[in-house]
Design a protein around this nucleic acid. Sequence first.
DNA 1: TAATAAAATCTAATAAAATTACATAAATTA
DNA 2: TAATTTATGTAATTTTATTAGATTTTATTA
Lengths: 280, 280
Amino acid sequence: MTLLADLADVEARRSKSARKIAAYITAEPESVLSMSIATLAGAVGVSEPTVNRFCTGLGRKGFPDFKLALAAELGRRQPGITQDIDPDDSSRHIIDKIFDATRATLVRAQNQIDVATIDRAVQILGSARSIVLCGLGASASVALDAQHKLLRFGTPVIAHTDVINQRMTTASLTGEDCLICISYTGRTMATVEVAELGACAGATVIGITTPGTPLTGHCDLVLPVASEEDTDLYTPMTSRIAQLVLFDVLATKLAIHKGPAFSDQLRQVKDSLKTTRYQG
Amino acid sequence: MTLLADLADVEARRSKSARKIAAYITAEPESVLSMSIATLAGAVGVSEPTVNRFCTGLGRKGFPDFKLALAAELGRRQPGITQDIDPDDSSRHIIDKIFDATRATLVRAQNQIDVATIDRAVQILGSARSIVLCGLGASASVALDAQHKLLRFGTPVIAHTDVINQRMTTASLTGEDCLICISYTGRTMATVEVAELGACAGATVIGITTPGTPLTGHCDLVLPVASEEDTDLYTPMTSRIAQLVLFDVLATKLAIHKGPAFSDQLRQVKDSLKTTRYQG
DNA sequence: TAATAAAATCTAATAAAATTACATAAATTA
DNA sequence: TAATTTATGTAATTTTATTAGATTTTATTA
């Protein structure tokens, strides 16, 4: 179910008209849902059969079937309404609400991701001499999770969750090093100061935070994380989940970036753990 | 979840034919997507205009529009099939695949949750004298995240990510303490041994792991976490996300369990952080 | 560069599907 | 039980999508 991604691929592989259609649909997919094949053909400037061939070419039965697939895809992208938790809710309700809220956060984060920014971050991580991760509170465990993911790449990486250690390490970074500061609020003074220290030391600073906050001022690159919470007393903070998945994306892209020879190293790291486990 | 919920409401409010239609669609919504209005009318045993009126009665423009809404709704419910990541995938594809895989894991975890088990876990946590969290590797950051969530409840809680410290602490637990062991594989020897130590010491042991693994043997209560991975080299480990959300559920239920007086304490903890942040 | 072949696209005709108008039947109420 | 409202079905109409065949565009080769 990667219809929208397939649409992006059309850009390269298919004919001129197909590209025009794909571009139009990518630009405003929602409006296509309420169009007939004639309306869409007119809007794009091609004939109806061309639109129809476009749909069948993408593996659909026809235009209506294509619209259904598009609707399903968009539905997945549209965050459901996140509802506050009521102390009187049943356990089942609470579970559903928390999972729904988490999914909604993921959807928002996914929509927010800019491919070019990710690619630049991967470039930076791939060429960094060392990587330092800083986070406090909930962001501390995100930093540690990221450390665990990045360890396997061979590049020296450390997550600091102690303000003193963060400052000591950061102050002695060089232009070849990369500092990743994680803060959901982007306002934690200690973390902002660490980012500033890192920037002064010449390190490339990547911020994983809410855009437009004090932290972003000291960052060379900001990976925005959807933020729309802290409204309700009981609803948990879900943005850290989005941050974790963001690191999943970075680590995965980095592994691919390193090339096929590197996959042997990944396997070695995996194998190194075998003796620590009871075999199934 | 508007449309499917609306369908359930139809049961009560609308006419006989409308109920028949709603029942049919509720029973197998996916198959309706590939039906024409005539096919559906035939399957249900009503006329085409009746189906049409049913759709408009639910606030849709007509049958095709209804199908689009249904497709969107189903798309939100059922995460796409998790696809392995191909090194040749575009960045957009990789991002979508990772987010989809994460959502799929969440859906699986959500379906797997047993309300009674959660409630029992909350009971245990609520009455524990102290809580010890143990995890290694990826589970270490889950333990730390859980610690961060549980800190605000006042009960002494600590996450250990060092095997020696884990054993030392665990061995000296009492029957009033609670030990939470986190391991996605359920086969990490060190963690299994820690669980055993804790059980011998008399502590209540909660395992957050895959059912049917060595770890579960030493647990008083197992919170299962959907596991279906490690197949692909590049696809990231998503079960830790499910574990985090599981802790969100536990912490939220615990906050409610503690009663309304406790919400003041929650606010105090929140307020205690204010001076560490730049105000927006 | 011109001739030829392949493809992409369009116009027009056909088929399919959905909607509307109107008639009939069922249910509800006085 | 008759009157009235509401629900449902039949058939006609309209909208929408698909197919067939002609035409143009693009690519290929002599």
